[in-house]
Nucleic acid binder design. Structure first.
Length: 588
RNA sequence: GCGCUCGUAGCUCAGCUGGAUUAGAGCGAGUGCCUUCUAAGCACUAGGUCGGAGGUUCGAGUCCUCCCGAGCGCGCCA
């Protein structure tokens, strides 16, 4: 159990004793770390929250609760403050015990089983298979990947999914472009790529590949539609190979790739629409013209199959079928989400780019309609990424085909730096990504700062062996092992800087659970930076005063105690870095 | 026109989903600290009417309304 939660439990027990069972649970009691350390290790507003319910003066109630807290053996001081806050500090022994538990528990102390094996489906990336991934996609990819990992560590059964939009107009366009590129590869002068097709250079190699395998892929197809279908399948497969290569380079993995086309061919759309019909949620009707500044010129009112999205809070009913009889994107997508829902995922998470925000009410209303409001869908919107170099924006023009591909960025800055940087901002905020900063070895580069702390800790663990050669150590890394500090007398850790590091370490569950709640991994990178800062601070104390160093040759016991803290810090940093898909550095 | 997101120090951003006694970091600017475990660091100083105006509340950067500004979006595209 986390230290925070344990504090809340103390309060809960005290409340039960005083007021009986009708009090907030430990999970509901807010326990915070005050901004200023001098106000205490923890604080709570519970007296303010409860004052009305129990008809007490908040200040008076806080004082009484503080008195009860102070009587607890792990709590050193507790007092009421302000309008009714309670501040308290733990005893040195309690902090030392916290560290001891962290060391004993390996890294499991950070996580608890909140998911209890429940199934959650995380759909992310799902970039259209018409071109390579960009840095923008990478943000969503890493976000989804880390959220999936975090959910898994907290006990959920996670399925990681990629939805391939391999049906619809864009795929026809792709096929036409590829067939043209094939003719170009065969020596024909195709001139400019006509308007309406994809002009990007990245499709050239696929045209060449198609020319090489023309007989095998297109065979003797004379029918233009059959040729198109074959070319499309060929191009999608090639592009998806590239996408998967980029994802692999990023360290991002999916369990399932679901094809829109395959779902449609299997009748998923008809099934979904049948469900809606049963509930009287589809009808034939005519829509109002779209409300854009300049409505499409070719717009004209038509009778079509519509879904009553307005009944679920959407601003307008939505078409399911085009005039040529094809299903709309929404029809396919609702069928897909219904499919995910019926695959028994109790929770669905979609990671989407900011350019899809307008579509959220549509899909949420569609899924609510299909699932009888039973589906639990959360959509994490990921704002756009601006790529900079030396503070100047690098243009990402897909038209020119000269846009910054994910592959090129990973090559330039490395997987770890890219992952960490893209995780430092909350998803809902736009992100500037400066290629020249992430390779810098300084504080400007937050990953470096954290890696430096990790490497410093590793360095101390190696050097300990020089002073104390008999300490158990790992021959390959040269670092002392846990066995060396297992019996350390942690009561020797009483310095402020040391307690600070323990406190930061112990707050890891807070950062991780906040990520889980808000689906915002930047809280994890923030925690890493805080822990790194505490550690750098503690390190520095040893520069001012030799007796404050981790390794004090004349005092074996003190050294062991401090090395225990160094080891715990190193493992905490390492564990959480790895959770983010970043490899901790043993040296820099 | 409408919807969503964002607006916090010169710059880039946190602010734990309503808490206080001084709104926090980093960069940039200024000062100090290496015969000492990595100075790739640490400590300190300067810098903010939290876009603006109302409102709800014991209590608002956080919630509500309106306004201003930026980004993204609005279809028988996906």
């Amino acid at each position: 159990m986390s230290l925070h939660l344990r504090q809340a439990e103390r309060l809960h027990e005290i409340l039960v004793r005083r007021f009986g069972a009708e009090v907030p649970s430990a999970e509901q009691i807010l326990v915070e770390v005050p901004r200023e350390r001098k106000f205490g290790d923890f604080s709570s507003n519970i007296a303010l929250v409860l004052a009305k319910q129990v008809k007490a003066n908040p200040r008076q109630l806080a004082a009484e609760l503080a008195e009860d807290l102070a009587a607890t053996d792990t709590i050193a001081t507790a007092s009421a403050a302000g309008p009714g806050f309670i501040n308290w500090t733990l005893t040195d022994a309690a902090w030392q015990k916290t560290l001891a538990e962290i060391i004993q528990a390996d890294s499991n102390w950070i996580f608890r089983d909140l998911g209890q094996g429940k199934a959650v489906n995380v759909e992310f990336v799902s970039a259209n298979p018409t071109g390579p991934l960009t840095v923008g996609h990478a943000r969503g990819a890493i976000l989804g990947d880390v959220l999936a990992d975090v959910l898994q560590r907290f006990g959920w059964k996670v399925e990681r999914e990629y939805y391939i939009n391999d049906a619809g107009n864009q795929i026809d366009t792709l096929a036409d472009t590829i067939l043209l590129r094939m003719r170009e590869a065969e020596g024909e002068d195709i001139g400019e790529i006509p308007r309406g097709l994809y002009p990007g250079e990245y499709l050239k190699p696929i045209g060449v590949a198609l020319a090489e395998q023309k007989d095998k892929v297109l065979g003797t197809c004379a029918d233009p539609e059959a040729r198109r279908t074959a070319a499309a399948a060929f191009a999608v497969e090639k592009i998806m190979q590239g996408v998967q290569a980029d994802l692999t380079a990023l360290g991002v993995r999916h369990d399932v790739f679901t094809s829109d086309k395959a779902l449609r061919e299997a009748g998923a759309v008809e099934r979904a629409i049948a469900v809606l019909k049963e509930r009287d949620l589809v009808y034939r009707g005519v829509l109002e013209p779209p409300k854009g500044e300049d409505p499409p010129e070719d717009w004209e009112p038509r009778q079509q199959l519509l879904f009553r999205a307005t009944q679920f809070g959407d601003e307008s009913d939505r078409p399911l079928q085009r005039s040529n009889g094809d299903w709309t994107y929404l029809a396919g997508d609702m069928a897909y989400h219904y499919d995910k829902f019926t695959r028994s995922a109790e929770k669905l998470i979609n990671v989407w780019g900011a350019d899809h925000v307008g579509y959220i009410p549509r899909i949420t209303s569609a899924l609510a309609a299909l699932s009888d409001s039973k589906a639990n869908l959360r959509i994490v919107v990921c704002q756009l990424v601006r790529v900079l170099r030396d503070g100047r924006e690098v243009r990402m023009s897909k038209r020119e085909g000269s846009f910054v591909t994910l592959g090129s960025v990973v090559e330039e800055v490395g997987r770890d730096a890219l992952r960490f940087m893209l995780l430092t901002r909350k998803p809902s905020a736009p992100l500037d990504f400066d290629l020249s900063v992430v390779v810098k070895q300084s504080l400007e580069n937050p990953l470096f700062y954290v890696q430096y702390a990790h490497a410093r800790a590793c360095s101390v663990l190696r050097l300990a062996v020089e002073t104390f050669p008999d300490m158990p150590h790992d021959p390959s890394s040269g670092e002392i092992t846990k066995a060396a500090v297992q019996t350390a007398d942690l009561s020797l850790l009483t310095a402020d800087a040391e307690r600070e590091v323990i406190a930061t370490l112990a707050s890891a569950p807070q950062a991780l659970e906040a990520t889980l709640r808000a689906l915002e991994p930047h809280r994890i990178t923030a925690w890493l930076r805080t822990l790194a800062a505490s550690f750098h601070g503690m390190w520095q104390a040893g520069r001012a005063d030799e007796n404050s160093r981790f390794i004090v040759a004349s005092d074996r016991s003190l050294s062991e105690a401090r090395l225990a803290l160094v080891l715990a810090t190193r493992d905490g940093l390492g564990e959480v870095l790895r959770l983010l898909g970043v490899t901790p550095a043993d040296r820099l």
